[in-house]
Amino acid sequence: MGENYLHGTIKPEEAGIAMMMKDLYTNFNSPLTNETLCAWHDMLFNGRTDLERGQYRTSNDEMRVVSGRIDKPKIHFIAPPAFKIQKEMDQFISWFNRTAPGGKEQLSPLIRAGIAHLYFVTIHPFEDGNGRISRALTEKALSQNLGKPTLVALSSTISDKKKDYYTILELQNKNNQITPWLFYFGKTVIEAQKQTIKLVDFVIAKAKFFDAYGALLNPRQKKAVLRIFKEGPKGFSGGFSAKNYISIVKTTSATATRDLKDLVNKEIFSKTGKLKSTRYELDLKPFYPTISIDSAEKKQTNLTKK
């Protein structure tokens, strides 16, 4: 189905995810089909030859969803056997389309998206990639209800608390009561939306930062700054030190000291701590929106109290 797009220096798997999401956002309002899901799977594993790409699993081996150590895995549930997959997926797709806006059994956005996610991963139709495709289905469901593509950082939000995700999945598969899952899912989607807004603000701040300071950075400083930005809104894990700078730009201690002092003097970096505990942080405050999500929420809370 797909082609082995390399997109320059972008890894095939990253290009595959981009292709899948482009298709999702372009065709979010179209009905779901088996062909759509298989095409997503083919895109997702762009360049891979070690698994069944673009088709539901066919192996008779038992499909288990596990976590933990390889030598001591924790089994969360066992998926339906391969010979039942097509029937299960036909029923799932029919349900998904019936519950869409304008469908015969229309559901509210979060409930529909939450059920779709759980329903799909429980069938576990593909050899690999079921979690990523279930999150894409979540975005499709939400986009259909909103009437436009929606950006939700669901994958990263779940990854931040992956243990909670697997715990609630395991509990859900021990009974037929779906309310705890929907409660968890709703909170996670809301948190993911907040993270998305923070990420968008961060990307805008990054662009404004380079507009303001790009010409003031030497090649070493620019390389270090780009590496810090790569960490995203959460910042550099453990704080950014002179040792990090030396390692990233491959320079001497004396040069690193001069470069870092220059960045602090230009107020590009702020400095905290002393000696080995010294850490540096990009000062992005001037480039962020005046009212952040957190400050807006605090204002709402204060108004509610009044």
Rank of each mutant, 00 (worst) to 15 (best):
L284Q: 06
I70A: 14
F92T: 01
K234E: 15
N4Y: 12
D164S: 14
P73A: 08
D90G: 14
I133H: 05
T99D: 07
T255C: 02
N244F: 04
Y25L: 05
E52R: 12
G114K: 04
N130A: 07
A205L: 07
N175R: 11
G8A: 10
L118C: 02
K148I: 01
K104N: 06
V189R: 02
F28L: 02
E14C: 04
T290W: 04
L137V: 02
K276H: 11
V249G: 04
T49D: 15
A100W: 02
M43G: 00
K148F: 15
A79S: 14
S277W: 06
K163I: 03
N175P: 01
V66A: 09
I85Q: 10
L303H: 11
N244V: 01
I78W: 09
K298S: 05
G235F: 12
E267G: 01
E13D: 15
G8M: 08
M89Q: 09
T257F: 13
W40H: 04
N175Q: 14
F209W: 03
L137N: 08
M1Q: 13
T301K: 15
R69L: 14
K298E: 11
E139G: 01
D42M: 01
I85F: 12
R48M: 05
I133E: 04
R69A: 15
K72C: 03
N130H: 08
I197F: 02
L199C: 00
R279H: 08
I178M: 15
L182K: 05
H76C: 05
V66N: 13
P219S: 12
K299H: 11
K299S: 06
E62A: 13
L142G: 06
K187P: 00
V264I: 08
N27E: 10
K87L: 11
N60A: 15
I78C: 09
D262G: 01
Y280T: 02
I123W: 06
E170W: 02
R258Y: 13
F240T: 03
T26F: 09
S241L: 10
K243G: 06
F269G: 10
V121C: 06
P12M: 10
K298C: 00
N244Q: 08
K161F: 10
K285G: 01
Q86C: 02
L154D: 03
F185T: 00
H124D: 03
M19H: 08
G214I: 00
G54V: 01
I197E: 03
K198G: 00
K261Y: 07
K298P: 00
K208A: 15
Q300Y: 07
T251H: 04
T252Y: 06
L107D: 03
F45Q: 03
K271E: 15
P73Y: 07
V225Q: 13
I93E: 12
N265H: 11
K298A: 12
K298T: 02
P80L: 08
Q55N: 12
A100L: 03
D23F: 02
D23H: 14
N46L: 03
Y5G: 13
K163H: 12
N302D: 11
N218L: 06
K298N: 06
N27L: 07
T290V: 12
K250C: 02
K306E: 07
F236L: 04
Q221V: 01
T138N: 05
T99W: 05
E62F: 05
G186A: 13
P73C: 09
E267I: 00
V189Y: 04
N145A: 15
E88I: 00
Y165T: 00
K104S: 15
A205H: 09
A15E: 09
I268Y: 11
G147L: 06
